[in-house]
Simulated assay, not measured.
Amino acid sequence: MAELNNIRTISVPSIGKLPLATPAGTFTPAGESREHKPGRLPEDGGFLTGYKPAVLELNINLQAGVDLDAINAIKNETVTIRLESGQVYMMPQAFRSGDPAGWGDGESKITIMSNTSERIS
């Protein structure tokens, strides 16, 4: 059976390791996007390219001592994502995007974005 490639840890320099819930969330590295461009005939079609930022959508476990204000204040940080497979990605100048994380039922959601991402191992 193949090993699933899940998020193992997320580190933020100003906070340390984030306490992740189960499931931890999703990570989509930055990269080129493609959109279909139809033509008059099928062979005349093609695609347009664009660029998508890196997106990290996390489920946070709200343990005692978690500083939700610090998590909501994430901006211009170098976030490190370690996967179960051993791969490591870096999101430079990352920032919390969208709505701030809140309290409730022991878990909260947060989205972190970066214009670029890089696989470092």
Rank of each mutant, 00 (worst) to 15 (best):
I120A: 00
I71W: 01
A24D: 00
N59C: 03
Y51L: 08
D69F: 08
S97F: 14
D99H: 08
L58K: 08
W103I: 13
V55L: 04
G106Q: 11
S108L: 01
E32N: 11
A94R: 02
R34Y: 15
S114P: 06
I10A: 02
Y89E: 11
V12W: 00
D69G: 13
N61W: 08
P23N: 08
P13I: 11
R96N: 01
I60F: 05
R40T: 11
D105W: 09
T78I: 08
E43C: 08
G50I: 07
S121E: 03
S117H: 05
K52C: 04
V79G: 03
V66L: 10
P23M: 04
V79R: 08
F47R: 08
T116R: 08
G65M: 11
L4R: 15
A54P: 09
P23C: 05
S114W: 01
N72V: 03
I81K: 03
M91F: 07
N59G: 11
T22P: 01
T26M: 02
N61R: 13
L83M: 15
S14C: 09
D69K: 14
R8I: 00
P13M: 05
Y51V: 07
S114A: 15
G25I: 00
I110L: 00
Q63Y: 10
P53S: 14
K52D: 15
G50P: 02
P53N: 13
E35L: 12
S117D: 02
I10F: 03
